[in-house]
Design a binder for these strands. Sequence first.
DNA 1: AACCGGGTCAACCGCTAGTAT
DNA 2: GATACTAGCGGTTGACCCGGT
Length: 236
Amino acid sequence: MEGSSGVRKGAWSQIEDNLLRDCVNLHGEGKWHLVPKRAGLNRCRKSCRLRWLNYLKPNIKRGDFSEDEVDLMIRLHKLLGNRWSLIAGRLPGRTSNDVKNYWNTYMRRKVHSHKKDNNIEKQADEAKPIVKHHEVIKPVPRTLSKTSPWLQGKFVNSSKVGVSEEGATSISGSAGNWWETLLDDKEDNAVNNNNTCFFGGADGEFNLWSEELTSIDCDFVTQGESWSDFLLDLQG
DNA sequence: AACCGGGTCAACCGCTAGTAT
DNA sequence: GATACTAGCGGTTGACCCGGT
């Protein structure tokens, strides 16, 4: 099974797995464009990377998702939307592909059954108030330039938070990690009409994704971690 | 036993972001 | 700034499996 470019496609054989595993063990992860050559595989770099990440990598957990994992997944999906890699990053041993597949199968099924239930209870529901719709909160990427004071530790202390003409929030300075106080200072941070906070530098390079962080149960921020860890992941 | 339909999951595709030149 | 290249992501596809008829 070869593609038009002569690159092999389709299911991986045991021999290919071994070659790839040996190669990664020898040279380490990364430089995927070199892996096919190094490993002697007639596969494209994407295929090699995916095979490693989703199947060969040590500590990959296989089998059913536990209740805890599902619960966590639901919460994270509520927060992040279809950011499978980020969600998977919070589920040790799970890959983004696993999470995505699980969501697309089990969850769809759940939704369907839920809809069924809803139809049965429709009459009763009509008497109830409409449940508030939950928007999926998608983080907006922040662009950090190399010359950014944030990265150079030049960010000076200030508790002032200003609002630009556009209605976006800008911080003129901060002590330590600004995100540490993100939740604590929610009241202080001006929020625009879209419920989105914009932390704008002078060159407009900072856009902070918004949300009702405090309204979300935070128990997926695992023990020994803080929101800063979580938010740093989002940057990645 | 043969067929069919649905579910599952590995893998591919297309796209974007980041980086080097 | 433009271009080329690589890495990584999410959406989608297709092969395989399994249970029902």
